[in-house]
């Protein structure tokens, strides 16, 4: 066992995920159980073993630099929940004060 401790509320904040008062203890007990199972990998000898990110080597493949049809403004905005003047509208980000 490790000294790891998953603080569900703290980690959910990192993930920009608001949790309800009911969800926090509920997820905490479920994820503690999952974590206990996952911790078996802490006892495996992996000295000298290289990590695998992708099952096959991934190279910087690039396609031909040819113009292709894009969405266009209308297509790109079609699913936006709030828009104005051909742009996506969001709450104010920069504080002018």
């Amino acid at each position: 066992m490790s000294d790891a401790c998953l603080d569900v509320k703290y980690v959910a904040d990192l993930a920009r995920l608001e949790l309800s008062h009911e969800e926090i203890p509920h997820f905490q007990s479920q994820l503690d159980k999952v974590l206990t199972h996952i911790e078996q990998i802490l006892s495996i000898d992996v000295d000298g073993v290289e990590p695998t990110s992708y099952p096959t080597p991934v190279y910087d493949r690039v396609r031909q630099d040819e113009a292709q049809e894009g969405f266009g403004q209308e297509g790109a905005l079609k699913n936006a929940p709030d828009q104005t003047m051909g742009q996506i509208r969001v709450p104010k980000v920069v504080d002018a004060s």
Binding site: A4, V11, L42, V46
Partner: peptide, 26 residues
């Protein structure tokens, strides 16, 4: 939500090597 929390946790500072890098080695 559970998987996002679990995934964020194993990638977070202090736990990345213990969980994520180790899992990649396994």
């Amino acid at each position: 939500k559970r998987r996002i929390i679990l995934g964020t946790y194993v990638l977070s500072s202090g736990y990345y090597d213990a969980y994520y890098t180790r899992a990649q080695k396994v």
